Simulated scan of single mutants.
Amino acid sequence: MRRKTVSVGPSAFRPGLLAPRYWPTWFGLGLLYLLALGGHPLRRGVARLAAGLYRRVNPRRAGIIATNLRLCFPHQSAETREEWLRRYLERHMLALLDLGRIRRARSGELTRQTEVEGQAVLERLRAEPGLILTVHSVGLEWAAAMLAETVPGSTIYKPFAANPVVDWWFGGMRTRHGTEALPRERGMGPHLKALRSGRSFFYIADEDLGAEHSVFAPFFGVEKATLPLAGKLARASGRPVYPVIGQLDEVTGRYRLHFLDPVELPATADREAAAAINRVIEELVIDDPAQLMWSLKYFKTTPPGEADRYRD
């Protein structure tokens, strides 16, 4: 019987990554470094062009964004949702172009370049580790890298199996300040252990991971498959929950960490716990909805008997 290989984290560099088939990837990464040396106006101009091109060549993904916004904000006008879609795509492309800035930043540089809303909460987090509850926002990578400079912790890592160069590059970016990045199949045990030992856990709580371990609860009024784990982890570790979202101002190019006050979540695995998590996420998102990564299928898992919400 063949033994199943279990991933242990981001891959290490090896000579095979320099093979000719990976040269286009290296070329792209080189462009990110060059853009990091350029100014924000250059990156924003490229991001605007990329956002428009993305929408034309990938209308299905643009349709997913539009569907998410329509489901969550039916009371908003079509014009408002269209503006949010446009701003999200521009911000998302700009954040991708900023990855070179994150990868090459010296220790402490990201902290100095980040605006913080809720400085007192950040200072408490640095003194009292906890579960950092966040979402897939356009500023996610920047927020994670910035916090890693001064907040030791762990996070869940999703390998880029299709391209080992990208896996190595992202892995290095996410772990170079000491963050322990572990694949999802390792479970929550190592992160619970880290919390108990005095390290924080950077936990992204908004993704739809299927029905097996999820509970349906309202998210902006729409039933969404939600993992009700945050409260259980906080109770088991005796640590607080710190909600935060990474945001990007596309005009100035500045990133901002917006902290809410620490919250208490039900330590159960039921609808009440899932709904409480979703309410926290809503509060993080509602002040600027175009910051959330709406291109994800947040509602791909549907309650029994309900049709596919993304059907063309």
Score class of each variant (00 low, 15 high):
residue 284 L to F: 00
residue 222 V to C: 05
residue 105 A to Y: 00
residue 59 P to T: 12
residue 162 A to M: 09
residue 254 R to G: 04
residue 268 T to W: 11
residue 69 L to H: 01
residue 75 H to E: 15
residue 295 S to P: 04
residue 258 H to A: 14
residue 117 E to P: 01
residue 154 S to N: 09
residue 283 E to S: 15
residue 293 M to H: 12
residue 308 D to F: 01
residue 97 L to C: 10
residue 61 R to A: 02
residue 118 G to V: 10
residue 303 P to Q: 08
residue 181 A to P: 02
residue 274 A to F: 03
residue 41 P to E: 12
residue 277 I to S: 11
residue 61 R to F: 00
residue 260 L to M: 15
residue 244 V to P: 00
residue 102 I to C: 02
residue 125 L to G: 01
residue 251 V to N: 14
residue 197 S to P: 03
residue 4 K to T: 14
residue 71 L to P: 11
residue 213 H to M: 06
residue 279 R to A: 14
residue 105 A to F: 01
residue 42 L to C: 07
residue 243 P to M: 07
residue 282 E to L: 08
residue 213 H to Y: 13
residue 298 Y to H: 10
residue 148 A to S: 01
residue 48 R to E: 15
residue 177 H to W: 12
residue 30 G to I: 10
residue 28 G to N: 03
residue 259 F to H: 12
residue 292 L to V: 13
residue 290 A to N: 07
residue 256 R to C: 09
residue 31 L to P: 04
residue 208 D to L: 10
residue 42 L to R: 02
residue 203 Y to K: 07
residue 15 P to Q: 10
residue 185 E to L: 11
residue 61 R to H: 01
residue 272 E to T: 15
residue 199 R to Y: 09
residue 275 A to L: 14
residue 244 V to Q: 00
residue 163 N to A: 06
residue 241 V to S: 04
residue 177 H to I: 01
residue 187 G to A: 04
residue 11 S to A: 13
residue 26 W to D: 01
residue 187 G to M: 01
residue 128 E to P: 13
residue 169 W to Q: 08
residue 71 L to V: 11
residue 212 E to M: 12
residue 250 E to P: 12
residue 115 E to H: 10
residue 89 L to C: 15
residue 288 D to Q: 12
residue 224 K to P: 12
residue 118 G to F: 03
residue 19 A to T: 06
residue 110 L to N: 06
residue 298 Y to G: 04
residue 178 G to D: 11
residue 80 T to A: 10
residue 29 L to S: 03
residue 106 R to W: 02
residue 147 L to Y: 00
residue 235 R to M: 13
residue 116 V to P: 03
residue 95 A to Y: 00
residue 307 A to C: 04
residue 85 L to H: 14
residue 198 G to R: 05
residue 273 A to E: 06
residue 257 L to Y: 06
residue 272 E to I: 14
residue 130 G to F: 05
residue 116 V to Y: 04
residue 146 M to P: 05
residue 184 R to N: 13
residue 77 S to K: 09
residue 113 Q to V: 08
residue 261 D to G: 06
residue 302 T to W: 07
residue 123 E to F: 10
residue 295 S to C: 13
residue 107 S to V: 14
residue 58 N to T: 03
residue 112 R to K: 14
residue 155 T to R: 00
residue 26 W to G: 03
residue 180 E to F: 01
residue 246 G to V: 02
residue 227 L to E: 03
residue 89 L to W: 12
residue 287 D to I: 05
residue 296 L to C: 10
residue 280 V to E: 10
residue 283 E to M: 14
residue 168 W to N: 08
residue 178 G to I: 05
residue 131 L to K: 05
residue 37 L to T: 01
residue 264 E to P: 07
residue 220 F to L: 06
residue 312 D to Q: 15
residue 227 L to K: 04
residue 200 S to W: 07
residue 311 R to T: 15
residue 236 A to R: 15
residue 59 P to G: 07
residue 195 L to A: 11
residue 214 S to H: 06
residue 208 D to H: 13
residue 27 F to R: 09
residue 128 E to Y: 09
